[in-house]
Design a protein around this nucleic acid. Structure first.
Lengths: 342, 342
DNA sequence: CCCTTGCATGTGATCGATCACTTTGCTTCG
DNA sequence: CGAAGCAAAGTGATCGATCACATGCAAGGG
């Protein structure tokens, strides 16, 4: 399992700024300036340092730099504990955004319950390792326990005081689009199989769903308290009374939708002929199921980038730029939805 | 989107070891000893320091410590660029194992192609930020470019010189179990839809598949060069000649299997009546598809732990303990496989 | 011709810990 | 009683960078 390890040499000690300076015939401070690219340096000096750095294969010691500057250029990303809910594209977007700004990311919180996770975050901040935290999972009472910390913490999907300006519950918005779309097809009575309570995205979708049903004068049979899992979708479908009158189901994500569809099928209820089902996330397999899965495509990478951008802005004490919301989501109706049976 | 940020106070400066020492009435070195838990300290001294630390809310500055000890207690985990192939349970296992040994993990490489990824890894090592690298994706020519580095790099699924002792191609082994299982049911002619070349796990499964077919005196129609995606499975099934004689397909993973099944279904070929299909990974949705998906359950978390354990051992210059292989995989035949049509 | 001005560069202090070595203080035993 | 022996605690150097400030040197003004 071990791949290549350095086979070379006598454990050459890493060169320091002093050695570069000596070889280039300048002072350490001049080398430091060179590294910071201060501008204002005689070209001859510059090239001497250039050569010395190349010859010694010098790389700045980032630890030492951090120590002096008191900046670590590291942010922590907190992921949820449960297997299936890790939003990889978001993670990738967030990570890339951080990387582009010269930050490295520390992914933590994959272990332990919510309490321990909060503990870990606190430690990370307290020990000065991270300049900020981006969490993709609820942190519980962390807020209350951070009295002393000044580093920003952002929980994905939760909003700051500025929320009005960008639309509250933004990442639940497409729930309204789904409801409207289904209502246009003739559906009147809905069910929502929600994600785990406490998750901003679940709570947002839940809220927007309820809002939308009211807004368009429709009926909601209810909201099933799911947990993002395939199983919870299956159970919701199995437990729905035969006389519920529901003809359209909004599932919290594509996995839940799979469960819902299978649950109906096992009861002899056809999808989409008898009931329409919408998923969320446009997982790549949705196109290959029978029926193909109606869903919401979200630009997870962009969402991740945006979340990280907010965090980095907060770290710098600035305000984050907003990406136009309209580009982030797109309704993708496919085979699992259609007109109601009548 | 911004959650709580510290609302408290005048940006209280973090306490140092000196302040603790002064408050406790001892020297800084004594406090350092306390932190290292050297043993051998008068209980009275200990409790004085205890109190001082609590009062000042002191947390050691890990950067400063790293600088002096020249140990960062950080390892890098390199993830693949493509969306679907991130082995979350492995990531979790690896991360947890690192955490338990006092290491933090730096997740990188989510951006850029293979070249840039290798670049990133090199930077990380060169700047002294990471003590080792665990990659879940091939690193290409990285090995050649690490001439000077002494930090260990482990690529998941690739083996060191010690491979004989634990069974070469270990993580492809279950492919043989699948073949044997299907042969016992009466199948004689197989197809393997492989994962992306270059990936150790894909290559291992490929090799073990070929070996097994030969070993049991069976026939392989061939190996389809897939890329882990649902689509590649679909294409493989669509492109299979009607007279291929294949009655059993081994897919590289569950997603590929979904594609294969749908591909057959779209041609009017029934699964499992006409063709048996096996997936790999036991994704949670497999139980809810029609037909339910035959697959291989692997203990991803344990695999991740083991990989990280190897890395940590390498960092310490030790040899890693091996987990018994038998516990890591389990064949799970379900609805998508059965006897051949005759 | 001297002094100001500004750019390029050098000197020494500093970040917060640990390391290597020294000192203090108490036991113990010949 | 004195010195060895040992545990506990202290002193100063050090890791590798940046920061704050000082200095050298050439150009320009009075």
């Amino acid at each position: 399992m071990v791949g290549g390890s350095g086979t070379a040499g006598p454990k050459r000690k890493r060169a320091t700024i002093w050695e570069v300076a000596r070889l280039a015939g300048v002072s350490h401070q001049t080398v430091s300036r060179y590294l910071k690219n201060d501008g204002g340096m005689k070209p001859t000096t510059k090239s001497k340092i250039d050569r010395a750095i190349a010859e010694l294969d010098y790389h700045p010691n980032l630890i030492a730099r951090s120590m002096r500057t008191r900046r670590t250029n590291r942010v922590a990303i907190v992921l949820p504990e449960l297997t299936n809910f890790v939003p990889i594209p978001m993670l990738r977007g967030a990570s890339a955004a951080a990387y582009e700004e010269g930050f490295t990311t520390d992914v933590i919180g994959l272990e332990g319950g919510e309490g321990r996770r909060a503990e870990g975050v606190l430690n990370l901040l307290a020990s000065g390792q991270a300049e900020g935290v981006l969490s993709f999972t609820p942190l519980g009472d962390l807020g209350a326990r951070m009295k002393g910390e000044t580093a920003p913490v952002i929980v994905f999907g939760e909003y700051d005081d500025d929320m009005h300006s960008r639309g509250k519950l933004a990442d639940g918005r497409p729930a309204e689009d789904i409801v409207r779309h289904l209502a246009d097809l003739g559906h009147r009575r809905f069910l929502h199989v929600a994600g785990l309570r406490g998750w901003a995205s679940a709570d947002n979708r839940r809220a927007v769903y309820a809002e939308a049903v009211a807004k368009y004068g429709l009926e909601s049979y209810g909201i099933y308290d799911g947990d993002w899992s395939v199983r919870s979708g299956y159970q919701a479908a199995r437990e729905l009374p035969a006389d519920s009158g529901v003809t359209a189901v909004l599932a919290a994500n594509d996995y839940v939708a799979i469960g819902v569809i299978r649950g109906f099928q096992d009861r002899g209820i056809r999808v989409p002929e008898d009931v329409s089902v919408f998923g969320w996330d446009d997982e790549p397999f949705g196109l290959y199921l029978r029926p193909t899965l109606s869903t919401v495509r979200s630009d997870g990478e962009a969402l991740g980038r945006q979340a990280m951008a907010s965090l980095l802005a907060a770290i710098r004490g600035e305000r984050a730029m907003q990406i136009s919301e309209s580009k982030l989501y797109e309704l993708v109706p496919r085979g699992s939805s259609g007109p109601p049976p009548w």
